[in-house]
């Protein structure tokens, strides 16, 4: 399967294209949206795009188990990042009463 056929019926290229478009949408969310929570969700989306590409390559290299172990570590780090990131957003909201990243461009009040 190559070309358009691979994209439409789940060849390696299809998964990679989905991962790339997912990454682009996440990047657009980080760059275009101003709310910190939306930017956070964009980062999560980019992380997931990397996971899709990793597991797609693992499947097409004969079902490599190392990739699933790496995926396990990645979601452990993502969970830590979510907890600390959301705690920072809550702390910021308490100090500034805003979650707009433009309004929090400087550390000083």
């Amino acid at each position: 399967m190559t070309g358009m056929d691979a994209i439409l019926h789940g060849g390696l290229q299809g998964y990679l294209v989905v991962a790339l478009l997912l990454f682009a949408i996440g990047l657009a969310a980080v760059l275009l949206r101003r709310t910190l929570l939306m930017q956070f969700m964009g980062v999560e989306l980019m992380l997931n795009a990397a996971n899709v590409a990793l597991l797609a390559f693992a499947r097409f290299r004969g079902g490599d188990l190392q990739a699933t172990v790496f995926y396990l570590f990645i979601i452990a780090v993502a969970a830590c990042e979510a907890a600390v990131g959301l705690a920072l957003i809550i702390g910021l909201y308490r100090h500034r009463d805003t979650t707009d990243s433009d309004r929090t461009a400087s550390l000083k009040q």
Partner: peptide, 19 residues
């Protein structure tokens, strides 16, 4: 967790742009 924080912060709409 994210939805919980969104509801807790009570800022459901994007704020008007400063610039």
């Amino acid at each position: 967790l994210v939805l919980f924080v969104i509801m807790m912060l009570n800022s459901h709409e994007e704020e008007a742009a400063e610039f």
